[in-house]
Design a protein around this nucleic acid. Structure first.
Lengths: 94, 94
DNA sequence: ATAAACAAGTTTATTTTATAAACCAAATTT
DNA sequence: AAATTTGGTTTATAAAATAAACTTGTTTAT
């Protein structure tokens, strides 16, 4: 009937992050912040959660002298996202 | 870019309830409980929220001697559901 | 007839999430 | 050198989801 919705992905901001990451090689904090419109704090927290779940990989480097946080989606993350898409669709049919 | 997700519908159980109601004339508490697998308490709370939002209409009657709670989706509920479907799809494209 | 179990919920309490506000360190601008 | 901006993190607050406990009445078994 209805499939379970992965709670980690069933969150507006985390889903947006994953949606962005699935389409690109990598994306940094600033880019994700612009595209999602999230506050820094919220974004920071949600990136952490996705990272801890192994759905994304986070690299902290320096761009010249400024810090730069780069995110990439993992294989696990891709699978989870695809599963979520299947699952949510089970709720959308009339 | 990403559309807002109506918080009232972005909930696994409430979305399941709406998904069921959009396909039928009406459905009672017991039916919704079976189909969703939710606990009575959770179902009761979520039905209330949808009712207060005007997304569904709730009728409490008696079936013989036993109470019977019947739910129907409203026009407002249908519109909100359709909006939600559009919105969530904006997150699902690769 | 009475106690035990069941039905259909509701209410209250607890845990989990999401979000915002406050903060920090370093860099840049005025 | 003071003020502002950048790129975040940490802590606190508000809102949600969920579960546990309770209620009211009914049916079944003793």
């Amino acid at each position: 009937m209805f499939k379970e919705l992965d709670p980690l992905l069933h969150s507006q901001l985390r889903l947006a992050i994953m949606s962005l990451l699935i389409g690109v090689e990598e994306a940094d904090f600033v880019f994700l912040k612009e595209k999602t419109g999230a506050t820094s704090g919220n974004l920071s927290v949600q990136i952490d959660k996705l990272n801890e779940a192994g759905y994304i990989k986070v690299d902290k480097t320096f761009q010249g002298k400024m810090p730069r946080t780069v995110c990439r989606i993992t294989h696990k993350g891709i699978r989870a996202f695809e599963e979520y898409v299947k699952a949510i669709k089970s709720y959308l049919k009339k």
